[in-house]
């Protein structure tokens, strides 16, 4: 399959030529296939957000290229604008960007900017609302009368309504209760499956990324330091801890078990943990 998104030697330096010069991205390269669910982890200031804002053309690279469907998004003004729509970006705390008088209008804002027909906008708004679980009555309500969790859903729907092929979310579950988190994550995954879209999700919750993603990217000090399956990445659990990152609770427990002298492989999901423990028991059952 041809990659949908390709990043080549991307570097970004903020406030170039001033005393505040700061390198936020350093020679980052990777490519992304349609339908992938990718988790992006890294501590605060590691360059995650800067990277995300490059992927839809909000920030211009200091050097390096971003290819969407094989075309450099900065080679033509039209392509840059297209990238805004084909790569959807949901910022942290997106509910603070709501501004319209009704939920419907707010979700329709993105599609309207794309210049779609009224019928198409209507279809997309309803579909996006359905994806995130916003009800028919809520569509007519003012977004400011909703609860925090519902506002978040509306804001995410506003980006989903543009039907991006790549959906990037910056900590979509920050500050939500467990039920709300679970719900939003499930909706995002459903969007991926139904539209064969790529999801890139920045998260600090190792449990979430371990459970949902098929691929993990680890950013540290402006560099992409690890890129692989969760298993591959969590095999380097100790390095992650050294970088000041968290690891899933299960991985942590098994790391401690290993320190105690038990022969267990690194795990990150419940199934793996059960399997490893059963195996351990089986091996020791003669004793």
């Amino acid at each position: 399959m041809a990659p949908i998104l390709q990043v080549k030697n991307l570097s970004h330096i903020y406030s170039i030529g001033t005393p505040f010069e700061h390198r936020a991205l350093d020679e980052v390269s990777f490519s992304v296939e349609p339908g992938e669910f990718i988790g992006v982890i890294g501590h605060t200031g590691s360059g995650k957000s800067t990277l995300m804002q490059h992927l839809n053309g909000l920030l211009k690279p200091t050097s390096g290229q971003i290819y969407l469907d094989g075309k450099d998004i900065w080679s033509d003004k039209k392509l840059t604008r297209q990238a805004r729509f084909r790569v959807g970006l949901v910022f942290q705390y997106p509910e603070y960007q709501l501004f319209e008088e009704s939920v419907y209008k707010d979700i329709a804002f993105g599609p309207k900017n794309m210049g779609l027909s009224a019928d198409e906008i209507d279809r997309r708004v309803r579909e996006a609302a359905d994806f995130v679980g916003v009800t028919e009555e809520q569509l007519e309500a003012s977004p400011f009368d909703l609860s925090g969790g519902q506002k978040r859903r509306v804001a995410i729907a506003g980006v989903i309504a543009m039907e991006p092929e790549v959906l990037i979310l910056d900590e979509p579950t920050a500050g939500l209760d467990p039920a709300g988190r679970e719900d939003i994550l499930r909706n995002i995954d459903r969007y991926r499956k139904e539209k064969n879209a790529t999801i890139m999700m920045v998260s600090h919750s190792m449990n979430d990324v371990a459970r949902l993603t098929q691929r993990l990217m680890v950013m540290s000090n402006a560099k992409l330091v690890m890129d692989g399956t969760p298993q591959e990445v969590f095999n380097h659990a100790l390095e992650l801890l050294e970088m000041g990152l968290d690891i899933p609770e299960l991985t942590r427990i098994f790391l401690e078990l290993k320190k105690l002298g038990l022969d267990v492989a690194p795990v990150y999901t419940m199934d793996q943990a059960v399997e490893a423990l059963v195996k351990l028991r089986g091996g020791n059952s003669h004793a």
């Binding site: 804002q53 839809n56 909000l58 604008r81 805004r84 729509f85 959807g88 970006l89 910022f91 997106p94 603070y96 960007q97 804002f109 993105g110 900017n113 794309m114 506003g158 980006v159 543009m162």
Partner: peptide, 11 residues
């Protein structure tokens, strides 16, 4: 921040 978010929605 708000400007970036709205730009991402095509403003």
């Amino acid at each position: 921040k708000i400007m970036s978010a709205q730009k991402a929605r095509g403003v």
